[in-house]
Design a protein around this nucleic acid. Sequence first.
DNA 1: GTACCTTTGTGCTGTAAAACATACGAAAAC
DNA 2: GTTTTCGTATGTTTTACAGCACAAAGGTAC
Lengths: 229, 229
Amino acid sequence: MIKKEEVLAKLPDLDGALSQDQREQVLASMQVRTYRKNELIYAEGDIPSHMLCLISGKVKIYKDGVGGRAQIVRVADAVEYFGYRAAFADENYVTAAAAFETSVIASIPMGLVRQLIMRNPQLGWFFIKRLATALGKSDARTVNLTQKHIRGRLAESILFLKESYGTEDDGRTLAICPSREDVANLSNMTTSNAIRTLSTFVQEKLIFLDGRKIKILDEAALQKISKMG
Amino acid sequence: MIKKEEVLAKLPDLDGALSQDQREQVLASMQVRTYRKNELIYAEGDIPSHMLCLISGKVKIYKDGVGGRAQIVRVADAVEYFGYRAAFADENYVTAAAAFETSVIASIPMGLVRQLIMRNPQLGWFFIKRLATALGKSDARTVNLTQKHIRGRLAESILFLKESYGTEDDGRTLAICPSREDVANLSNMTTSNAIRTLSTFVQEKLIFLDGRKIKILDEAALQKISKMG
DNA sequence: GTACCTTTGTGCTGTAAAACATACGAAAAC
DNA sequence: GTTTTCGTATGTTTTACAGCACAAAGGTAC
């Protein structure tokens, strides 16, 4: 069982935007839950009643496309807010979210978030910045996934995972251990091709694989492959 | 020459968020310019000093990808604000914008926009909603462009153009006349394939072509093709 | 332990779409 | 008025990749 007090210490204060009073309001109405590995956090079509905050763990946000193939569109790392886009756009969720690994997530009623934004322009600015950044990334992703060839997409995904989740102490082994299917869903390819192309990367000494662990051996080369397409 | 007074009448007041005072501030610092067909409005890497408002005309926002192939990521129709994402995200432009056809565009200094948002939460909310909606569309676009086959992508683009720009009085002829290259850049395909696939759509009586004019003959079928992939 | 299932790895085949080639009419440049 | 350029159109070739099929390895249940 996670105690709210423990979360309290970790909860980011939305870019310093909240007053002590508002902060307490948020804490009072906040719920905390733990999700197991691969557990669904919300599904496509769900009503986005709460904003979520990833206290610890890792989360993938994905869309199911044609023929059941999933595409991971975003990921969240601790500590980070997520799951608010649909509510702001006045839509139901068009994506689903699931835990990459065991994750602790706090939820805050969207109604309260809206109230706070209306009283606190700095908080509004916080979300404007986050949304604008995410939109830029999404646009870049659209072009990368459509125009790059399979090797370029895989190289990009590996760098994306390093960027998003960081590395272990050696600075080269990715902090996340995704299944081959997750890699495929990030890179817009079939699992077969993710496995195959990872293998050729190993042969070319670009990466080293140990089960699901991915160690980057030649980042410069990966960047080149990613850039060239 | 366009007079500011004419623009004034058309300028949307940002969802009714502005006070009369703020409105006048905007008008005082606003610049208006006309862009010719295909003229560049801003380029990738430019510094986004101004927010833009499309008073009349049509605009495409696109990214140049691998091998000089462009991908249209968004379009703007009159009257609509655009070109603010990069400034909000504190980045230089990662996209370029050009006029589909002759367009009149007003520009407002981003500094003023930021000031107004900080004083006016409702204005912040206006942009949060717009950004959140755009992000949802961008995510959907990512999946559609990557997973659908060429016919599905083309069908989707035709419906997207109808959605975005509407039709002539007959309710079936698209209000925009894009070049085959524009269609290709919307649909993530080569110009050759855009031409070829448009031709087969004509043969199948789904659409009728008259130069660059596109008339939708069987919207239900197009929707089915778009959905199936 | 055995049985079962999931994940991973590899080879083969068919095909969608890019690349290439070529042609033609219309607009633009001279 | 001629030439050049550009947009459109269509046929052919090549290739990257998805879709199997199948085997091995690792987990989990009993």
